[in-house]
Lab assay of single mutants.
Amino acid sequence: MSRVPSPPPPAEMSSGPVAESWCYTQIKVVKFSYMWTINNFSFCREEMGEVIKSSTFSSGANDKLKWCLRVNPKGLDEESKDYLSLYLLLVSCPKSEVRAKFKFSILNAKGEETKAMESQRAYRFVQGKDWGFKKFIRRDFLLDEANGLLPDDKLTLFCEVSVVQDSVNISGQNTMNMVKVPECRLADELGGLWENSRFTDCCLCVAGQEFQAHKAILAARSPVFSAMFEHEMEESKKNRVEINDVEPEVFKEMMCFIYTGKAPNLDKMADDLLAAADKYALERLKVMCEDALCSNLSVENAAEILILADLHSADQLKTQAVDFINYHASDVLETSGWKSMVVSHPHLVAEAYRSLASAQCPFLGPPRKRLKQS
C-alpha cells in the first residue's frame, strides 16, 4: 500500500486566492494483479454453464480479502454459449462490502496482453458476489490457432484489481511565511564533478583513453575500487588504474551511474553493462540491467540471455529466462542460440529441462510459493 502523499503547497495549487485553511483528501486504492494459466484448455468440458475456478489470491499475505477468477468455457447461458465468460469473485471478506475495479486480458504466445476488457467503474462486491463479462471473447476466435491465444493449448488470463480503501483527510492552515525547501541536487552536482573533471585525484585508463576521477567517490560506490585504493596496490601508489576489459562507451555509462545513480543509455548496452556491474560489484546497476534484459526477452535471444545471466550470477534474470524458455519451449528449441547452448553450456540445458519437467508435473513435489530491489 502506498504512503499517503503530503498535500501540495497551496501557493502551487492555483494562481488564484489562497485560503486560510485547507483539506486534502486521499482515497486510498490498493492495486494488484494475478495470472492464471489453464493447461490443455481444449479438453475443458463443453457443457453450457460449466465452471472452472482459479485458486484464491489477494494483494498480499496480510490481506484478508480473498478473490478468485471464474471461467465458463462455453458461456454462462444460452445467450453467451458462443463466448467464454469471465468473472472476478470475492471469496471471503471481513467487511460487509468492498468496491473494486478490474481489468481482464489474455496473454498471447509472446506474453503480450490482448483482448483487454475492464470495468468502467468500481463495482460493489459482497462475499460470494462476482462481476465480469458474460461475453468476454468469442470461442471461435479464441480457438483459432492463427490468433495465437492458446500457445501449446494453454489459456493464460491476466487480471488487474484495484480495491478502494478508506479515504484519509489531511488538513492544515496557511501561513504568510511559507518556506520552500529546494530539491536535493546531489546527483546532478556529483555528475558535474565527473563531467568537468574537477578536483580529480586519479586516472582511469580504458582502451587508450584516459578519464579523470575521484578516488573517494569510486571507493564509496564500488567495493572493488575501494579494495584497489585501500591496500598497497599499484593503483593506490600511482593513482592510476588500467581497465582492459570494458569498452570506453560502456565504461562511461558505468561511471555515470557511479556518480549519479542513473544510467540513461542502459537499454542500448544492458548486456555489456551487466558484465561491468558484476565485475565492479555495483549491485543496483546489475539489477537494473537484469530488468532491462528481462523486458527484451524473446524467442530468438532467450538462450543467449540465459548464458549471460549464468555467467554473471544474475539470479533474477536467470529465473526469468528459464521461465520464458519453459513457456515458449517449442519455439526456443528451434533457435540457433539454443542449439549452440546445447554444445557450449549443457548444464544450462539440463537446468531448463528440470524446470520444465517440474512445471508440467506438479505432483512430483509440493507447490512452490512464489514470493528486491534495493
Score class of each variant (00 low, 15 high):
Gln212Asn: 11
Leu308Ala: 10
Lys135Asp: 03
Pro264Gly: 02
Lys268Asp: 09
Ser105Thr: 07
Phe199Arg: 14
Val168Trp: 03
Asn244Gln: 06
Asn39Arg: 03
Glu183Pro: 08
Cys23Gln: 04
Val51Met: 12
Glu247Thr: 06
Asn196Lys: 11
Phe141Leu: 07
Ala220Arg: 15
Ser336Lys: 15
Leu149Gly: 09
Asn108Phe: 14
Asn108Glu: 12
Leu186Val: 01
Phe141Tyr: 11
Glu242Gln: 01
Asn196Cys: 15
Tyr123Asn: 01
Met48Val: 01
Lys129Thr: 11
Ala321His: 00
His231Met: 15
Ala270Asn: 09
Ser55Arg: 04
Ser105His: 11
Phe251Val: 12
Phe136Met: 07
Pro10Val: 06
Leu356Ile: 02
Thr175Val: 01
Cys184Gly: 01
Ile106His: 14
Phe158Tyr: 12
Pro73Arg: 12
Lys28Pro: 13
Gln165Trp: 09
Glu46Leu: 08
Ser295Cys: 09
Ser340Pro: 01
Thr335Ser: 10
Leu204Lys: 00
Gln373Met: 15
Tyr280Asp: 00
Ser171Cys: 02
Ala357Asp: 03
Met1Trp: 00
Asp323Cys: 12
Gly60Lys: 10
Asp310Trp: 05
Pro5Glu: 03
Leu293Lys: 06
Lys369Cys: 02
Arg121Ile: 15
Ala314Gly: 08
Tyr83Leu: 14
Leu274Gly: 00
Val250Ile: 02
Lys237Arg: 01
Ala61His: 05
Thr25Pro: 00
Asp82His: 14
Leu266Arg: 02
Ile307Asn: 10
His214Arg: 00
Val179Glu: 02
Ala309Trp: 00
Asp130Ser: 09
Thr260Asn: 09
Glu79Lys: 07
Gln120Asn: 13
Tyr123Cys: 15
Val343Met: 08
Asp152Tyr: 08
Ile38Ser: 01
Leu65Gln: 12
Met288Leu: 01
Ser55Met: 10
His347Ser: 05
Ser119Met: 01
Arg198Phe: 15
Arg99Met: 14
Pro366Arg: 14
Asn108Ser: 01
Arg198Asn: 13
Pro362Leu: 10
Val163Cys: 10
Asn326Cys: 11
Phe324Met: 10
Ile170Asn: 02
Gly60Cys: 05
Ser80Lys: 09
Val322Ser: 04
Ser374His: 14
Glu253Arg: 06
Val179Pro: 03
Ile243Trp: 09
Lys262Asn: 07
His347Asn: 04
Leu149Ile: 07
Pro73Asn: 03
Asn39Met: 08
Leu143Lys: 12
Ala187Gln: 07
Leu282His: 06
Met228Leu: 14
Tyr24Gln: 10
Gln360Pro: 14
Leu308Met: 08
Gly261His: 09
Asn40Leu: 05
Asp291Ala: 13
Asn108Asp: 10
Thr260Glu: 08
Arg45Ala: 04
Ser344Arg: 12
Val224Tyr: 15
Val18Met: 15
Glu78Trp: 10
Leu149Lys: 06
Lys135Met: 13
Ser14Gln: 05
Ala219Arg: 09
Ser226His: 04
Asn40Phe: 02
Gln165Ser: 12
Cys361Arg: 12
Ala216Trp: 11
Met178Gln: 06
Asp331Asn: 05
Phe125Met: 00
Ser58Leu: 03
Lys101Gly: 11
Glu20Gly: 04
Gln127Cys: 13
Asn196Thr: 12
Ser313Leu: 07
Glu97Met: 10
Glu46Ala: 05
Lys129Phe: 13
Val168Phe: 11
Val250Phe: 05
Phe229Trp: 15
Asn174Cys: 02
Pro366Glu: 10
Ser85Tyr: 12
Glu247Arg: 02
Ile27Leu: 04
Leu186His: 07
Met254Leu: 04
Ser226Met: 15
Leu107Ala: 14
Pro8Glu: 04
Pro248Lys: 11
Ala146Met: 07
Ser54Ala: 12
Pro223Ala: 14
Lys215Pro: 07
Ser15Ile: 07
Glu300Val: 05
Glu235Pro: 02
Cys23Ala: 05
Leu157Glu: 00
Ala281Gly: 04
Ser33Ala: 11
Ser119Cys: 07
Trp22Tyr: 08
Pro17Phe: 03
Gly132Val: 02
Gly111Pro: 12
Ala11Leu: 07
Phe324Tyr: 11
Phe141Gln: 14
Leu364Ala: 11
Ala61Trp: 07
Ala357Trp: 06
Glu253Asn: 03
Asp152Arg: 10
Ser85His: 11
Asp140Ile: 03
Lys237Thr: 05
Val343Pro: 10
Lys31Val: 09
Asp77Glu: 07
Lys74Pro: 12
Cys289Arg: 00
Leu293Gly: 07
Val91Pro: 06
